[in-house]
Amino acid sequence: MDPDARPAHRRLRPMRGLDVLHRALYEIDLPGPAGPVRYTVEVDTDRDWTAVLYADGVLQTEADLPARLPVPGGVIEADHGMYGVSRMHFTAGDGRERRLAPVRGTLEDLRGRFAHRHPRASRAIGWAAVAVLLVNLALAAPQALELATEIPRVAERFGTFESPVDLPWWLNTSLYAAGAAAATERVLTFRRNRIVDFETIWTEA
């Protein structure tokens, strides 16, 4: 984005109403020359996948994700997946990392407070998300392989493969919706596993 196109002294807009559905805000306090400075990173999915950095509510810079945003003492590293922010960490000059905290009122903050108030229910939701993703993975893998072998070059080299899984459209749709919900739950709680979350290619198709 052209820096000259940014409004001068643009300030961070407070969370309002349905903003929770498309805005993610994370914050961290870092030392400044006159005292602590609160740095906030905004990612708004209604716009392009861009990380916008504010210092005490005033715009500093912005960059396309994945982004490295320079701040005193290190950088803020931000990245995303299809279902939301997947990384939001401050990395100090010595390599130590600290995750930024969700701003109060965001969906990530609401999910965290629910986990604090209802730990058992939160764990049950987390395990349910894992189960959904693993089931989808088992069903998606053979279908993905069949699609891959339909590519002429792949078929010529490796042959074709017919998936033993042939699901009706309504079940495919249900699995898509359940997989999307489970993947979103994993993103909101900053959980990531190479095997479990590999399933998201099914719901991104």
Rank of each mutant, 00 (worst) to 15 (best):
R23L: 05
V165N: 11
S174W: 13
A180E: 04
S163Y: 02
P168Y: 08
R96I: 11
T50Y: 14
T61H: 07
S86N: 09
Y39E: 06
W127V: 07
D109C: 05
A24T: 05
A131R: 08
E204W: 05
M1E: 08
Q60Y: 06
P3F: 00
A121F: 12
W169Q: 06
P168V: 08
D56A: 10
L18E: 13
A140W: 02
R99Y: 15
M15N: 06
M15A: 13
D29F: 03
W170R: 00
A180T: 10
L53N: 10
A5D: 11
N193Q: 08
P66V: 09
E77R: 14
A177I: 13
A140R: 02
T61Y: 09
V154R: 09
R111M: 13
V103R: 04
A144F: 13
A183N: 04
I28P: 00
F90A: 12
D19S: 03
A129S: 08
V75Y: 11
L25D: 01
Q60C: 13
T149C: 10
P66W: 06
Y26S: 02
T149R: 07
R98T: 15
R68S: 15
G84W: 02
S174A: 15
E162C: 02
L145W: 13
E156Y: 14
L133T: 01
R98A: 14
R6Y: 09
L12E: 08
F90V: 06
V85I: 10
A178M: 04
L137G: 07
A115Q: 03
A144E: 11
A205G: 12
E156F: 15
D197G: 01
G74M: 10
H118T: 13
A24R: 06
V52R: 12
T91A: 11
N172F: 04
L147R: 10
D56E: 14
A128S: 13
G32R: 05
W170V: 11
G32W: 06
M15I: 11
T160N: 08
L171R: 03
A78Q: 09
V135A: 03
T45G: 14
